[in-house]
Amino acid sequence: MSGVTTPAAARAHVEATPVGPPALEVRHLTVRFPGLEADAVADASLSLSRDKVVVVGPNGSGKSTLLQAALGLVTPASGSVEVFGRDVRTARAVLGVGTNLEEVYRLMTIPVGRLLSLWEDLQGRSSDRVRAWLEEFQLSSVLSRPLFRLSTGQAKLVGDLLAVGFDPRLVLLDEPFDNVDFARRQRYLDLLARTDASVLLNTHQFDLLNAIPDWGLYLMFEGQLIGRFRAGDIDRLYVSAGELPGALTTFTTRSGPVSVSRDSGRVALRSVSDLSYLKDRIA
């Protein structure tokens, strides 16, 4: 793909980058929404330094809220989020953060082509790479239309490409493959593999994990962030009700403690195609 860094070049860049604060540091983050009893995010902690992690969890588990907190779009009840060492609440002009969340691109109603020009100005980076990718992904027709006139899949892909298109150092992706066809999903995965940015990717799709075995893996359940595991180990992870001796970790759900163990346990994690039903399966 044009303009994409090769894996070797990416490694070389990472090795040459001086050690600094983590790209993303989440410490005991709790997010609470008015009128809701349960916390949307409950005491979550995570550190991301020049690596890539995927957060897997059912709908409503708090994945998107975690990402929005990192982007400064929701206010934490307690805890903190830092991006490149800067507290998100007071961060200003921290360049190099990309996301596919559509709402951050709704500064005004303009066609995608003009949005790219605007973003070029705001990011101080050329939009040539995104324009080339749009062509490669056969999305050139979107340039003359505003985001809200695109199909759900097109809008998602445009957001995905904007997220990685302006030389980001940190990429935060929320369900990047929803409504995206298989071929383009593969292309985008290739693109993510080649980027040297730190990546946090939310998904509820387990099948994705086999394609990114080297990535870190967190589970998100009832607002809790559980991990860190390795995405490639998904076939070896099991969940069981109760506190299992020798478990990798144990967390508390509204129906009691749940253990995550390696190679043995009540239910193989890979067999839980939809984590929403996890509680029913292990009961």
Partner: peptide, 20 residues
């Protein structure tokens, strides 16, 4: 009033772009 449609964009923009 049109600002109300872009509050997320502004919250993000002030933090992560050159927009002030």
């Amino acid at each position: 009033s049109s600002m109300t449609y872009g509050t997320s964009a502004l919250a993000f923009g002030f933090r992560y772009t050159r927009l002030t």
